[in-house]
């Protein structure tokens, strides 16, 4: 049922990577999942064309006029719907955000990523009056476990200081997450001997999905 939208109008913040990690991890735990590929680079569509046996379904033909309707239709059919949005501020992005049960805003520890993350947040906040609040949460991506850069620390503190909710789990920098796109497989299908730190990558994916699911359950309870 929940529609999880992955959005940051800044390019290259880790939206497609986060989307694929979430979708394949949920599927690995037995859930039915549809991932919408709304990124003009079509990474998820290309992934689905590969040899993966993952049950994740991919839809790649939505546009700004039908995205909200299509997301809701899939939510009626699947346990989870995930939308990988384009890295621009488009009407499609705005429409998808409005159809979301949870908006995940990936950001790297850079001021540019964070300022565009804020842009998405201020849009969501402004919309709240018209269409009701949309839960959102910022996700730090490509972090190095145990080594936060100064920029990253400052940005984290600033966001927390202004009341922006952050995920406790980051999506760390891992070669395995890139390899998913290279080999067009899900994490559990890759060879641990060929991909560095695969075990850690799976662990991180589980922790993140665990937090996402916990978050969705809490929102549902509150409703």
């Amino acid at each position: 049922m929940p529609v999880i939208v992955i959005s940051n109008p800044k390019g290259g913040t880790g939206k497609s990577t986060t989307s694929l990690v979430l979708a394949t991890t949920l599927a690995r735990h037995g859930a039915s999942v549809t991932a919408f590929d709304c990124d003009p680079n079509r990474h998820l569509v290309a992934w689905k064309d590969g040899p993966s046996q993952s049950k994740v379904e991919v839809i790649g033909h939505a546009d700004s006029s039908n995205i909200a309707r299509m997301l809701k239709a899939e939510a009626a059919r699947q346990q989870f719907v995930i939308a990988d949005l384009e890295g621009t501020a488009s009407l499609m992005v705005a429409s998808a955000i409005l159809a979301a049960d949870l908006v995940i805003i990936p950001t790297q520890g850079s001021a540019m990523d964070a300022s565009q993350a804020r842009r998405a947040i201020s849009f969501i906040d402004d919309q709240a009056a018209a269409v009701g609040p949309r839960p959102y949460r910022v996700l730090f991506t490509r972090t190095k476990p145990g080594f936060a850069t100064r920029d990253e620390r400052v940005i984290r503190e600033t966001l927390i200081g202004s009341g922006v909710p952050l995920f406790g789990t980051d999506l760390a920098e891992r070669a395995a997450y890139r390899s998913m796109f290279t080999y067009r497989l899900s994490l559990e299908e890759m060879d641990p001997a060929a991909v560095n730190g695969l075990d850690k990558a799976v662990e991180n994916a589980d922790a993140l999905v665990g937090e996402v699911v916990e978050n969705l359950r809490a929102t549902r309870q509150a409703a």
Partner: peptide, 9 residues
């Protein structure tokens, strides 16, 4: 994850 059921929003 069975508490997440397909459902029309």
């Amino acid at each position: 994850l069975s508490d997440f059921r397909p459902a029309q929003a």
